[in-house]
Design a protein around this nucleic acid. Structure first.
Lengths: 324, 324
DNA sequence: CATTAAAATGACAACGTTACCAATATCTGC
DNA sequence: GCAGATATTGGTAACGTTGTCATTTTAATG
């Protein structure tokens, strides 16, 4: 900055003001400084700026995993808002591990981010305090059932489960099964299953059987689990899946095994991923607004100074697929 | 830090040394400081540290998009290495736009990252200079055909195209078509198509027809394009796709239309995504090591101090699918 | 136990910005 | 043309660390 200042024949502070276009700068001076800055290809050092300001243009984003299209969509949504504002996401992955999550949050907070986005509402004791100490806005995503630290954007997973149960019941399915995976790692999926089971019981057609694989969700696991579940309980006429990867696997199994879908076996996924719309029989699914969730999270973060903390239910919808 | 120092009855610098476990600290002092730090729940301010050190624990990662499973896998691979080292990715998305990419790179560099990972080898004039000015390592991913700024990890897309052409030719296909999308946005895919076409010509069975949709790649677009291409050139006995989303769409179209795959129509995708392994007929595809690419990129970045710049060809393999 | 080497601790000045206040130039209205 | 207001510029001191060097303490040696 010193070099730019002396080349332009002005003080450093003026260079600073020009670079972040602060008010009350004459056009003459601005032009002179810009020219000098360009000729030296000077870029302001944000680290120094952040140190002085006690805040930065970074947003800490803590997600459980990147190998799940749900979270990459969410991140995409977040970035779509941040990038336009000249903000940047610093990423931390918890891998569904609370210890690790704490460590990651601590490290990210040490960068004085201007805000933080967390996944889920489960955050325990030291975390809310740490964030409050910095006085930055927090948005928690995915779930809205619980007590958020700050704002929250997501859907009600128990509502979604009830919606699924009612939908399948309305369609006439009476012997319903459930398939999950990865030991129900995102604990939201467990809550969803429990609400689903409870609703089915209320409807008088309790869950017939279920399989929760220990492996990570994938179409392959979905296919295998479906075969296994149908062997274990042949009377099943419909399966609700923890996510679309599993459901697609189920659909592929049915197609291969010549099982009539949705007549002989109904299939309902969760999330509504794009590929499910193109399968020979389009997958029925509970569509969740993942990209939108990211966008809203980022927007809430940016506006929380004026608007304070909010809870935003983005709600789901049941897709017009043909498998259930 | 001052508070911790006075609580522990030591100097600030000693606190600093304990926090980043520098050598030559007695156990007694370390314990005392740690206790004080914990009781005040003190976290070092990395911004200040980075300013002093002129380098941080951030790694700038510039990708074209997050709505493509290729890049989320790559990012996953990058994070899997970084997180273990206490490093963090700061993300920038170019949206396949060179202007935007330049802006993003500039902003990320102003954070004094300890390294930067870029996508592709196309980076023009100001960029190499800007990076060199900081003296930090660069790794470019996806492609290795060209002149990298620093290190590069990826595959040879022309080799992959040649491999695809040879494979299909060996299988007896003679009337081959091609389907791409999104105006061949990642320019690598165009290079790949051209190499594919050239090889087919050399083999004496030039490309029969192709469709490059302007829409973003998706199974839906793949399905539509496949129908359109077959109508346009019914003699086609095989289609090579720019990616697996498109190819899966093609497969779904074939399944719906009752086209015999791979007898009547062969299908070959690109990338080898997981879901293709579970379809009723497993998708044949050129498998690319996306996760591994991210891992290697991060590793190269970390080791480039000792090992200097390298070019790493991770190579592809043709999957054991059944659609071609 | 003196002497020297090594280990442990501390003081101070940066790192590159920007907030705060002071100083100067420019513009009003009468 | 002048006081007073306003717009524009500059000076100085932080922000919270850490590298360098100085100082103190501890250990090692004969």
């Amino acid at each position: 900055m010193k070099d730019v200042a002396s080349l332009a024949g002005v003080s450093e502070i003026s260079v600073s003001r020009v670079m972040r276009n602060a008010p009350n700068i004459s056009k003459k001076l601005r032009d002179r400084v810009m020219e000098a800055a360009n000729s030296l290809s000077y870029t302001p050092n944000r680290v120094a700026g952040a140190l002085k300001n006690q805040s930065s243009n970074l947003v800490a984003v803590v997600l459980p995993s990147m190998s799940n299209e749900v979270f990459s969509s969410v991140l995409d949504g977040i970035e779509s808002v941040l990038n336009d504002q000249g903000l940047h996401a610093v990423l931390g992955l918890s891998e569904y591990d609370t210890e690790r999550e704490l460590k990651v949050i601590r490290e990210l907070l040490s960068w004085s981010p201007m805000g933080i986005i967390l996944t889920g509402l489960h955050h325990q004791d030291p975390i809310p305090g740490m964030i409050e100490q910095l006085g930055i806005p927090v948005v928690q995503i995915m779930d809205i059932e619980g007590t958020p630290i700050g704002s929250a954007v997501g859907i009600s997973h128990s509502d979604a489960a009830i919606g699924a149960a009612d939908y399948l019941h309305d369609k006439g399915y009476r012997k319903i099964g459930y398939i999950g995976a990865w030991s129900e790692k995102p604990e939201r999926s467990k809550a969803r299953r429990l609400a689903f089971e409870a609703r089915l019981s209320d409807l008088g057609t309790p869950l017939v059987a279920s399989i929760i694989s220990e492996e990570r969700s994938s179409a392959t696991v979905g296919s295998q689990s479906t075969a296994a579940l149908l062997q274990q309980a042949p009377e099943i006429d419909c399966i609700f899946y923890a996510n679309d990867d599993l459901a697609l696997g189920g659909l592929f199994h049915a197609l291969s095994a010549g099982i009539n879908v949705p007549g002989e076996l109904g299939l309902l996924g969760f999330n509504g991923i794009e590929i499910g719309k193109a399968t020979p029989i389009p997958l029925s699914s509970i569509e969740t607004p993942r990209f939108e969730m990211g966008r809203e999270a980022a927007k809430l973060l940016l506006s929380s100074k004026e608007n304070g903390n909010r809870i935003k239910d983005l709600s789901f919808k049941i897709s017009g697929g043909k498998t259930a």
